[in-house]
Design a protein around this nucleic acid. Structure first.
Lengths: 358, 358
DNA sequence: CCAAAGATAGTTAGCGGTTTCTATCCCCTG
DNA sequence: CAGGGGATAGAAACCGCTAACTATCTTTGG
């Protein structure tokens, strides 16, 4: 009898072939189902497959036949709620398209990001989805452009998810959401409620594309309503609860005058709420607070947070869909996903002025 | 001149070899750095690598040389905060050990789970980390045992993360945290505060290993204090905010008598708090509430939640570490990670009885 | 001064599949 | 009844890289 697979070792097509008395080719065809094979033969092969507990070797298949069915997902970290949802979307769509999903985290390190892209090129990932705002510096953009070209040459596709395009000649797919629009809308909402002294909490990290967009929307809303753009908080904010807390605390301590706070993210807003509460200020009676992202947390806060809804999961799904089904010659694609205000309980009219004046 | 790589195609070792006038073997050795190569040769090869923008083909390497450096991570979904942290830990440790991380979600479908394990066997993942409580049914355990054996035969390792062992002869690594101990501790804490009527919210899904453990701890604490085990809520709970809300609502509507609620997870607790607040009950003055998991949300709730801390990230890290560095002949390993109560503001002494009685 | 040991580089044979390209066998048609 | 064509199956080449042997050319030691 031909090649009895050593027990404890992984059987190969050859083992299956030998065990069912056909050639390796035939086994391959039965498994792929892309070539006529007689019913009897197919049955014999399948029987052997079952008996030997054979499973194909994905690496070998990738080498020989089509490529690897893999999508890579590169992100700051997995635990940020917004990122997690994007990840969910990416995984979802990748699975729906029959792809596997590789995930890596950068912890905000641009070097690491580029390293990972290189790694994904080795892995022959079909698409590399980069999530989260990146730097706006020109050297960074230059390097990223190189990376995009490299991936393109390897038959892969770079997808920028939630950050602006690199340039017209760069082979990359861009899917971002309307940061500016959402910020414009929610700022307008605050203005329409009567607020005139709104603090934008989150500036101070210029060059960060996501916040830049939100800030632009904030400013544009003021201009549209013919209001002076409030002097922003330029404190460096790290976009976590603590920095929101700290910034609010400082604001209060310095006797700043304001009736509303626009936190750059919901997480920051959560810190803001705590600081306000500690200071004995009621929300929204004394101060209105709004956030951005509409992560689940927004509904768990007290009061529930009025914020800008972003469908992060859709963002991830769209990114993968576009990357995989793109028109072969589309150099760059660009899609913007809408955002909208969701009104809850944390924003209301400003308090009646104590001593007149707006 | 030998093989000029067609522009636009991915260069191979052969291209690099031709371009630098050496053999493919030498190129491979320069890249791997595991064999003496003269400095001059190395330099020539590296130059060619740079000029051609060569990147190795991971699939080919996996086929030829060592295996694929990959760890798989199978989870309910990526957005549950607890899961996300485990994922973070898995990714972290995998990266630290020079591995890539494949991630897949099951959405709670056991069939899908088994399918994915099979898929990972094809992928030759070095370890397959299964996260989250699974079913306790014997048929499920039987199938999972098969899967573990299959993986073992393929040189891979099944890691059960946060669920109990399958059996003594099953080749699998188990890393779980002390569900029962934590539940015991926090229940004891409530009892020591004076509570005698504690509702455990989350029973009703027997066979779910995580909750089973927590419930056991709850019961054991009562027994240890010579108290009758309260009649549990057997309402089916889906472990989301809504079911916590709904269950509490019903509890109140039916005039149930209780002074504290032990929610099976923090997320459930968040729903509980909302229902209580709506009913005009203060926490912790009127009712005490505790949760389990200590996800970031716990600190964002009002009042901040007293809960059981679980280091989910460590769980993920440990899982990968053990799976990769296991003793080659260790059939099964089992590690339990400790949990501890973190006291915040949501639990206090029960209210003074209105009409006597305990 | 010659043989044995080192240091380098090349040859060749896989790894485990897939995919041409052939080779049969069989049935149908003219 | 010969020849054409469809249905099946196999042989061999190849995917890109690694690893076990060889083959040189230097050294070096007795």
């Amino acid at each position: 009898m031909a090649r009895q697979p050593t027990s404890g070792e992984r059987p190969t097509v050859k083992d299956v072939a030998a065990s069912s008395g056909v050639s390796a080719t035939t086994v391959s065809r039965v498994l792929a189902g892309n070539y006529p094979v007689s019913t009897a033969t197919r049955a014999r092969v399948m029987k052997a497959v079952r008996e030997l507990d054979y499973v194909i070797n994905a690496q070998a298949r990738a080498l020989g036949g089509g490529g690897t069915k893999t999508v890579a997902f590169i992100v700051h970290d997995l635990v940020g709620p917004a990122f997690a949802y994007v990840g969910q979307g990416v995984e979802q769509e990748a699975t729906a398209e029959g792809r596997l999903c590789l995930v890596c985290t950068t912890h905000g390190d641009p070097e690491r990001e580029l390293e990972l892209i290189e790694l994904m090129r080795e892995q022959q990932a079909e698409a590399v989805v980069l999530v989260g705002g990146g730097s706006n510096s020109s050297s960074y953009i230059e390097r990223m452009t190189q990376a995009a070209r490299g991936l393109d040459k390897s038959g892969s596709r770079l997808v920028l998810c939630g950050r602006p395009p690199l340039g017209p000649d760069v082979p990359a797919t861009v899917v971002e959401y309307d940061n500016e629009g959402g910020a414009y809308a929610i700022t307008s909402y605050l203005i329409s409620l009567g607020h005139r002294d709104i603090v934008f909490l989150g500036a101070g990290r210029p060059g960060h594309s996501t916040v830049d967009g939100r800030l632009r929307g904030f400013e544009r809303a003021h201009k549209a309503h013919h209001l002076p753009v409030p002097q922003q908080q330029t404190r460096a904010i790290t976009f976590d609860r603590e920095s929101g807390y700290q910034a609010t605390h400082d604001l209060l301590a310095h006797g700043h005058k304001f009736t509303a706070i626009f936190a750059a993210t919901d997480v920051v807003a959560s810190g803001v709420l705590v600081a306000l509460r500690e200071a004995g200020l009621r929300v929204p009676e004394d101060v209105s607070v709004v956030g951005y992202d509409d992560i689940p947390l927004a509904r768990d806060l007290t009061p529930q947070l009025t914020t800008v809804h972003v469908d992060h999961e859709d963002l991830g799904r769209t990114a993968v869909r576009y990357a995989l089904n793109r028109d072969r010659h589309a150099m760059n694609q660009h899609t913007v996903i809408g955002t909208h205000v969701v009104i809850r309980d944390s924003a209301g009219p400003p308090p009646k002025p104590r001593r007149g004046g707006r």
